[in-house]
Amino acid sequence: MTQHAERDTARGSVRVVRAGALTTVQDLGRPGHAHLGVPRSGALDPPAHRRANRLVGNPDGAATLETTVNGCAVRTDRPVVAAVTGAPCAVRIDGRPAPWGAAVLVPAGAVLELGAAEGGLRCYLALAGGIDVEPVLGSRSADLLSGLGPPPLSEHDTLPLGAPSGRSRDADTMPWPAPPAELVLPLVLGPRDDWFAEDAPRLLAAGAYTVSAASNRIGLRTEGPALRRAFDGELPSEGMVLGAVQVPPDGRPVVFLADHPTTGGYPVIGVVPEPRLAAAAQAVPGTPVRFLPVHGRGFRRGRG
C-alpha cells in the first residue's frame, strides 16, 4: 500500500505551456501490425530519441516528446531529470539557459522551454520516467496517419509521467553533426524500378531535388524534375516499407517515414536503408537531396 502511494506521488505529470508547431508523444513505434493496416509510427529520429532516454535513465522504449521546428514548453509538478536531443536548440529553465544534449534537473513547477531548432527540425525531450499515456498496441506513439495513440499536444494538456527507473547513462556524447548542406540518401533499387524510364537513376543521383515544405511524419516530399514512367499502367496496392521511395503521378519521389501507409498503389523505385532516415527526418525544406542508387544484390536485376 505504502509502496503504491509512494510510487504515485513519485510519478507526477507534465503540463503543456506552449505546444509548438507540432509536438507529439513518440517511442519506438508499433511494428508487427502492418497486416492490419497499422503504420509503424515512432520517433522519426530514433538515435536522438534513444540518446535522450539514456541521458535521463529511461529504457530506450520510453516515450519522449518530439517537437517540430519551434520547440515547446512544459511544466512538471515534481522535480524531474530532463534531456533534450535531436536538432540543437536553446534550452531554458524558467528563462535561465540550460545545456542541450545533457541531463538537467528541472525543479517542480519550473518551465522547461525548448527554443526553435537551429539546424534540423525535430528535438526530443525525455523526462525521467517517460511520458506514461495509455499504450495502444504496445506503443504510446502518436500516429498522425491513422490517428492511433495520443493526439498532438495542445496548450494546457496534462500528460502523466512514469516512475523514474534508472540512472542516467553516459549517452554516447557524439556531437550533433552540422546539418549537411546536402541530404545524401543511398537508394536500394526495387521493387518497381523497372516501371521507370532508363534515365531515372541518373536523375535521382544528379542532386536536382530539394526537400519540400509539404513533408511531414508520413513522408519526406521532394521538389524537382518528374521521374518518367517506362510504361503506363496501374499497380495493384502492395505492402510498403519504411524508407520506400514512392513515386506518385506527379513524378516527384516521396521517402516514406514512420507514419507511412502500410499499403500503396504507386510504384516504389527504391528503398532508403532505415539508418539513413533520421537524417531525412531532420532535413529542412529547401535542402538539396541526392539519391545514390545501388542495386539490390542477389536478386533479379536489369530489364528482362
Binding site: 511494428p31 508487427g32 502492418a34 497486416h35 505492402g239 502500410t262 499499403t263 542477389g298 536478386f299
Partner: peptide, 23 residues
C-alpha cells in the same frame, strides 16, 4: 520476420535478416 503483409497480388516480408536467402 517482423511483418507479413499480403496485398492484391503480392506479399511483403519485412524485417528479415537475410532476404536473399529466403527468396
Amino acid at each position: 520476420v517482423r511483418e507479413i503483409v499480403p496485398a492484391a497480388r503480392t506479399i511483403l516480408l519485412d524485417g528479415l535478416a537475410d532476404p536473399r536467402a529466403l527468396a
